[in-house]
């Protein structure tokens, strides 16, 4: 699909969290601000420079910095924000393992951790480190976040093994 957006703001349809949403966009608006204008404030403006990961969302399932993505780039693709992961095992694990302090970094972490646990079934410690490295937690709750990830991975391994036995 060829996409065009002129100098003036336009109305675009973006697929977010399973729904088509209409959003008024300048072509130079980042996806971060487009989502927040839709009331989806999970993706947080931190550095707006690709350094903190607070704005992480999934674009066609792949974690990206919403601050380094134009809103118009999402046209024709599917976006998932932390709000779209309310029923995910990783979100519950963040609660169970106290992986939240002030909470500012949490939506970004939830998004990247969800991608990790769903896309890498048996990640090595090195892979977990690589996936989590882009996200900063200034309250320094890194250990609890890793605990939450391991809990979900353990649970999915047990479920798979249980399923195999049946």
């Amino acid at each position: 699909m060829s996409v065009r957006c002129g100098l003036r703001p336009g109305v675009f349809e973006v697929h977010v969290n399973g729904q088509f949403r209409e959003v008024v966009l300048r072509s130079s608006d980042t996806l971060l601000h487009a989502l927040r204008d839709l009331g989806l404030t999970g993706a947080k403006p931190g550095c707006e420079n690709g350094d903190c990961g607070a704005c992480t969302v999934l674009l066609d399932g792949v974690p990206v910095h919403a601050c380094l993505t134009l809103g118009v780039e999402a046209v024709g693709h599917s976006v998932t924000t932390a709000e779209g992961l309310v029923d995910s095992p990783i979100r519950q694990a963040f609660i169970d393992y106290w992986a939240i302090q002030c909470g500012y970094c949490t939506p970004g972490f939830v998004v990247v951790c969800h991608a990790l646990v769903t896309q890498c079934k048996e990640p090595t410690d090195e892979q977990i480190k690589e996936w989590l490295q882009p996200n900063l937690c200034r309250c320094t709750g890194y250990q609890e976040i890793k605990d939450a990830v391991h809990a979900v991975l353990r649970h999915s391994t047990q479920t798979t093994q249980g399923g195999d036995k049946e």
Partner: peptide, 17 residues
């Protein structure tokens, strides 16, 4: 925020680009 406007296009062929 990017403080200026630009036209954005996502073409399908190099000739179009």
């Amino acid at each position: 925020m990017i403080a200026f406007d630009f036209a954005y296009s996502r073409p399908n062929t190099p000739s179009e680009a």
